[in-house]
């Protein structure tokens, strides 16, 4: 009697699935933070059936449709990638998972009773091409997943890195750190103006120590921020421009005109206190 390859594979489903789950990376690790072993196995089973579906078409087709043509396969591959990423696993884990499955399939393929050297070579090639497509798609998903993570992180970094600090009564400190692009600049200005209004700040110290390069675009953003602060009645003291930065700014022809500047944050704070009629004195001098 003859047994077609799809029928054969169908009969081996349980065995292959068990082998895959057994051999897959992370099967033994205690990483089940978000998914129980049971849930993970169920997810793998669904993915297994999705991947196997085109192989079970009887009679076998020469061409196995890639993930581009199978929306549900795409979906489950992506779910697998997302799941793996959540475990903070290696970026290669989803790919390794697929390689394991391919190996399992190839092993079983060789055990097909009707297999001849010819059919085996042909089926191996067919299967390899199919898995190549799936792997490429998965790799792409992994990259997109990472990209998404990175942009989410930079968003939250942006949130974190624009604090407006209340230094003293009516004095605010805005430490600028990192890259000032249009988006950052707008956000910084928003935060600052809101804080000025809320605290009725008379002086704002803007510290540029953490800004690596001040070019015309950055300078323009800072100037606009200063202008806006002034409209709310807060004077601005600019601090932390490095000696090289100062030289570069003058060469560029950028003038901060009538903005009060101090070399260090310390000097800037002293100036801000002076502007509000206060000073820091040692306790002996205060006549106790």
């Amino acid at each position: 009697m003859s047994l077609s390859l799809p029928t054969f594979l169908q009969a081996r489903r349980e065995a292959m699935l068990a082998e895959w789950i057994e051999a897959s990376p992370g099967a033994d690790a205690e990483t089940s933070v978000s998914l129980s072993t049971e849930a993970r196995n169920r997810q793998m089973e669904i993915l297994f059936d999705e991947i196997m579906a085109p192989l079970l078409v009887d009679p076998p087709t020469d061409f196995l449709p890639g993930p581009e043509e199978q929306a549900s396969l795409q979906e489950h591959l992506q779910a697998m990638v997302t799941e793996q990423a959540r475990h903070a696993a290696n970026a290669t884990d989803p790919i390794a998972l697929l390689f394991v499955l391919r190996q399992v399939l190839l092993d079983h393929l060789a055990q097909w009773p009707q297999a001849s050297a010819e059919t085996l070579a042909e089926d191996t090639a067919r299967l390899t091409r199919y898995f190549d497509q799936i792997t490429l798609f998965t790799f792409d998903s992994v990259i997109r997943q990472r990209d998404r993570q990175i942009s989410e992180q930079s968003m939250s970094l942006m949130e974190l890195s624009t604090p407006v600090l209340r230094l003293w009564h009516q004095i605010l400190l805005l430490p600028l750190v990192g890259i000032i692009d249009t988006g950052r600049a707008r956000q910084v200005t928003d935060h600052l103006l809101e804080a000025i209004a809320r605290h009725e700040a008379r002086v704002t110290v803007i510290d540029l120590t953490g800004v690596p390069i001040i070019d015309t675009s950055v300078a323009q953003h800072i100037m606009k921020t200063i202008d806006a602060a002034r409209l709310l009645g807060s004077r601005v003291v600019l601090t932390g421009i490095s000696p090289e930065g100062a030289q570069t700014l003058t060469k560029l022809g950028i003038r901060f005109g009538d903005v009060t500047c101090r070399a260090s944050l310390r000097a800037g704070i002293a100036e801000a206190l002076l502007l509000t009629g206060k000073c820091i004195a040692s306790m002996e001098d205060s006549g106790r």
């Binding site: 390069i213 070019d215 490095s242 000696p243 090289e244 930065g245 030289q247 060469k251």
Partner: peptide
Amino acid sequence: GKAHQTRLATAVSELTR
């Protein structure tokens, strides 16, 4: 020197922007 480096980096920043 550091001043040279900063000037060059700023120039590149301007032009690429």
